[in-house]
Amino acid sequence: MLEARLAQAAVLKKTLDAIKELVTDANFDCSDGGISLQAMDNSHVALVSLLLRADGFEPYRCDRNLALGINLNSLSKVLRSAQNEDIITLKAADDPDNLSLTFESQNQDRISEYEMKLMDIDQEHLGIPETAYAAVITMPAAEFQRICRDLSGISESVTIDASKDGVKFASAGDIGNGSVTLKQTHNPEEPALSTSIELSESVTLTFSLKYLVNFTKATPLAGAVTLQMSNDVPLLVEYKMEGGYLRYYLAPKIQD
């Protein structure tokens, strides 16, 4: 059986908000290491990979591996009934038909109990190769969100150019063009506000802004975001949170 108690409902609520528009149904794979999810988006050009490590729960118990097939929209509806500060407990039996969710207020004067039906999802599990990326850019998550949102007003796509001079986000569309260049900065008091660029070679790739804007729905989960790029492989956008991560992969657009 699974029993996982999470001190802050907000983590799960924000995580769901960050993936539910890309993925409709997915298996939550539960093992003694924690709860993970891996799913392609409906158009098969983006992949979502979530890990909530066991040590992020207190307590966490999972006797044998379980795949909980969940409709993310349904889970999101149930989680709307949880306050951000509530303590959430997830429970499932071995070979479960239902997932049980309990929301307790901080002072335990209110306990809400929900049961959600599970579904059978036959999901291909893709291997994610260990990759040494040519460019690794870490920047404030809010800055990345702002850039994607602003440039999506200009064009459907953005070209990200990482070089030793900085990282340039550029879009061109019918109404004109625009770009934002970030230089490396170091803010020792607020590391999450720094921008760092690690480069083994310059990389220039173009991506659909629709997807990037969707990925930035994870902004409330982390202060910083890391973009990792190499030529001809999918971009990795990673939000690290306490007790896990949310990663998105996106295939580059092919240049004419």
């Binding site: 392609m40 158009s43 098969h44 050009v45 983006a46 992949l47 893709l126 291997g127 994610i128 190769p129 260990e130 001809d232 492989v233 999918p234 992969y249 295939a251 580059p252 657009k253 092919i254």
Partner: peptide
């Protein structure tokens, strides 16, 4: 390759 093929190739490479 299309975006789909790029994803498939990359994730199948592991």
């Amino acid at each position: 390759p299309t975006g789909q093929a790029q994803m498939t190739n990359f994730f199948a490479a592991s």
